[in-house]
Amino acid sequence: MIEVYIDGASAGNPGPSGAGIFINANGTIDKYSIPLGVMSNHEAEFHAFIHALEICLEKGYDGSLVSFRTDSELVNKAVEKEFVKNKLYSPLLERALHLSKKMDLFFMKWIPSAENKAADELARQAIKKNETGEQTTS
């Protein structure tokens, strides 16, 4: 099973934002800290999810059981219901659903923030990288 922890963060709302993605693929750990520019925290959460889906598809995880973990209730509920009230997020949700349907075994679970510290730290690092345009993966 592939476990993917995602988080989006903003310094201000809107403000400089970042995506943090922590992937545990059967013991192999990958970390991503992606600067997103200026946006709201909710937008950053959706972008983190979209980036994580794209990474998983690029890595060929589409045939594996992939479990996404997020502390964003908005993103989790939007994916579960395939609907979001705020029309600003509709295109982001549509993109995320399109990508998630390319996976054979896709699962998303809401987790408390305390269980998402690795992705949160990566997202906060990404906020600082907005000034340099740097992106970190490991």
Rank of each mutant, 00 (worst) to 15 (best):
E82H: 07
E54Q: 15
E73D: 06
H47A: 08
D71V: 02
G27V: 04
L93M: 12
E45G: 02
L88E: 12
I29Y: 06
A48G: 13
S10Y: 10
T70A: 03
M103G: 03
E82L: 08
V38P: 08
E45V: 05
K117E: 13
S64D: 15
A52D: 09
W110E: 04
I23C: 11
Q125N: 07
K128M: 10
L74M: 04
A119F: 06
G60S: 14
H98V: 06
E121W: 05
A96H: 01
S10L: 10
L88R: 10
L57R: 15
A114P: 03
S67D: 08
A123Q: 08
E43F: 08
A118D: 02
N76S: 08
G8Q: 13
S100H: 03
H47Y: 13
P35Y: 07
L97P: 09
L122S: 02
D71E: 05
E80Q: 09
K87R: 08
F106D: 01
L65H: 11
T132R: 11
G20M: 09
K85F: 08
N76L: 04
K102E: 15
N13I: 12
G8W: 13
Y5H: 05
F46V: 11
S100V: 04
R95S: 01
E82T: 08
E131V: 09
E115Q: 15
A123S: 14
W110D: 02
A78C: 09
F68K: 04
E82M: 13
D62S: 15
R69E: 07
W110P: 02
L97D: 07
R95G: 00
G37V: 07
L53S: 13
K117A: 07
T28L: 15
I23D: 07
A78F: 03
E73F: 06
A19Q: 06
V84T: 05
C56M: 14
A9H: 09
G15Q: 14
T132Y: 10
A96I: 02
D30K: 15
E54C: 11
E94D: 08
L99Q: 00
H98G: 06
I111Q: 12
K102F: 08
L122V: 04
F22C: 00
S113E: 10
Y32L: 00
E58P: 05
L93F: 11
Y89S: 00
S10W: 10
H51P: 00
M39Y: 01
A19V: 03
I23R: 05
L93N: 04
G12D: 14
A19G: 08
L88P: 01
I29A: 04
I55A: 02
N26K: 10
L105I: 06
A126Q: 09
I127D: 11
H98L: 13
I127M: 10
P112A: 01
L122D: 02
V4K: 01
N86V: 12
T70M: 01
N130V: 03
P35D: 11
L88Y: 03
D7T: 13
H98A: 14
K31P: 04
S67A: 14
G15C: 12
F107Y: 14
D62G: 11
Y61D: 13
K77S: 00
K109W: 04
R69K: 15
G12H: 13
K77G: 00
K31E: 12
G37Y: 09
L105H: 15
I21S: 02
F106K: 03
F22P: 00
K87T: 12
K59S: 09
